[in-house]
Structures are given as C-alpha cells and as structure tokens.
Simulated scan of single mutants.
Amino acid sequence: MSAATLAPAGAERTKTRLLEFVKRHGPQTAQDLAQRLDVSVPAARRHLCDLQDQGLLEARTERPGGRGRPQHVFALTDRGEAAFPKTYSSLCVDVLRHIEGLFGAGAVLKVLDARNAEIADRLRTDLPAGLPLGERVQILVQRLNEHGFDATAAQDDQGRWVFTQRNCPNLTVARQYAQLCSAEITLYTEVLGVPVMRDTRIACGQACCHYRVG
C-alpha cells in the first residue's frame, strides 16, 4: 500500500495528508496535526488510532528538544515509511545487472544464495528441527509477514501444509531475475527441512505465490 493509493475522499484524504505531514516534518503531537490539518483534536486522534491499527504509525513519548515535559508524538513505522515511493528496487536491479555483466549470470545466483544462507542462519533459531512441521510453517509465515509478504498457512484436503504469499515486496527484481525466486525455494526447503514446491508465482502475473510443503 502507498500513501497515494489511500482513498482520495473524506476521512481517507485526511489520513493521507496526515501521513504526508509526518513524513515531511517528523514525529508530531495530535494537537500539532489537528492544527496543521484544520481538524479538531478528537478527529485527529481518531485518524491517528486508525493509522496505528493499520501499522502505519506508532506512538512515542519524547521531550521536545531533549528537555521540557514529555509529550506523546506519532511517528511513521517501517510499514508507514514503505508506503512512500522508494528507489531501492531499481537500485537492486542495477546492482545485479552490473554483477551479471562483470561476472556472468551464475554470479547473481551465488550472491542470492549467500544472502539466503545468512537469512537461514537467523531463521534456524526460530525453526528448530524438533518442532512439528505445521508449527515451523506457521512461524515461517509469521516471519514472512514481518517483511511484507502478506502470507497465510493452512492444511489442504490431504492434510499437507500449504502457504500463500499474496504480496511480493521484491516484485520489480523478481520479474527481471528469476534467480531470486529460485533462491527463495531453496531457502524455504532448507529452513523447513522438507521439499517445498511452488505452484503459482506473482512475478509471472498470477495473483499469489502458492507453495506446497513436503
């Protein structure tokens, strides 16, 4: 979701303006935001609560200028920051293109494999082999959601675990470098300790990435 994709009318327009103001000027109090947006303080608080519920803002207690009485301010979360346009994906594509040009196509996969090895090391703590497979799948899905994949897990009619990613945070890169998706399968197979198969892929124009486990 981006700030620009919020509904353009009424309350949603006010929420968009609120997010944009916090982005430009940093953490703000409800009173400051109400004054800037020309709405009542209770109305500003309602919008702030809605944006907190969406994970776009967080409340903090700060001292203005490092001194004075503490006050409650509202700041963008990582998800809120991600709501605004970034050039990270185009930068990543450029870097991978240069790696491929300098060292060959195989070098891209080596880079992605090295990255996945580092991620796998971090995940092993959360996914010990002694846990039942279903618990490991659900923990993996939780970790994916922390990184914006909008994932869910369930068991199919045969009792086999499946999981779905309804968003691809790396879509721009994945569309140009299929190696990213290949490395992803390798990572999931390694951390779950069983084969993982992908049936559909967002990078190929399908609605989601759907995986069968085991």
Rank of each mutant, 00 (worst) to 15 (best):
D126C: 07
D113H: 13
L102M: 15
D113N: 13
R115C: 11
V108G: 03
G104W: 02
A105T: 10
R124V: 05
L109D: 15
L109T: 15
D126N: 10
L127H: 02
G106H: 03
L102C: 15
A129Y: 04
L112V: 00
P132V: 01
G104F: 04
P128N: 00
P128Q: 01
D113P: 03
R115A: 14
G104A: 07
E118K: 13
A117M: 09
G130W: 12
E118H: 13
L112R: 00
D121G: 12
G104R: 07
A107L: 06
A129I: 02
L123P: 01
A117I: 06
A117F: 08
L131M: 13
D121C: 10
R115L: 14
R124S: 10
L109W: 12
I119W: 09
D126F: 12
L131K: 12
L112F: 04
A107V: 02
D121H: 11
L123N: 02
A117E: 15
A107E: 10
I119F: 08
V111W: 01
D113M: 03
A129G: 05
V108I: 05
L123Y: 09
L112A: 00
A120D: 00
A129E: 14
T125Q: 09
T125H: 11
L123G: 01
R115V: 14
A129M: 07
P132K: 03
R115T: 13
R115P: 06
D113Q: 14
A117D: 14
G106I: 05
R122F: 07
D126M: 10
D113Y: 11
P128T: 00
A117N: 11
A114K: 12
D113V: 06
A105I: 07
G130R: 15
L127W: 02
L131Y: 11
R115K: 14
L123V: 02
A105P: 14
A129Q: 09
G104P: 01
L123H: 04
E118N: 10
G104S: 06
D126P: 04
L131R: 11
F103P: 04
D113S: 12
G130K: 15
L131S: 06
A105D: 09
G106T: 02
R122N: 08
I119Q: 11
A120F: 00
A129V: 09
R124K: 14
D121Y: 06
L109A: 14
D126V: 09
L127V: 02
L123S: 02
N116M: 09
L102G: 13
L131E: 08
G130P: 07
A129R: 13
D113F: 08
L109S: 15
L102Q: 15
G130H: 15
A107I: 04
G104K: 05
L127M: 03
T125R: 10
L102F: 12
F103T: 04
L112K: 01
N116P: 03
T125F: 11
L123T: 02
R124D: 11
I119S: 09
A117L: 11
L112G: 00
A114M: 12
A107G: 08
L127N: 02
V111T: 07
A117W: 08
R124Q: 13
G104Q: 05
V111H: 02
I119C: 07
G106L: 06
G104Y: 03
L123R: 07
D126L: 14
L112I: 01
A120P: 01
I119A: 08
A114R: 13
A120T: 00
A129H: 11
L109C: 06
V111K: 01
T125P: 03
V111M: 05
D113K: 13
K110G: 13
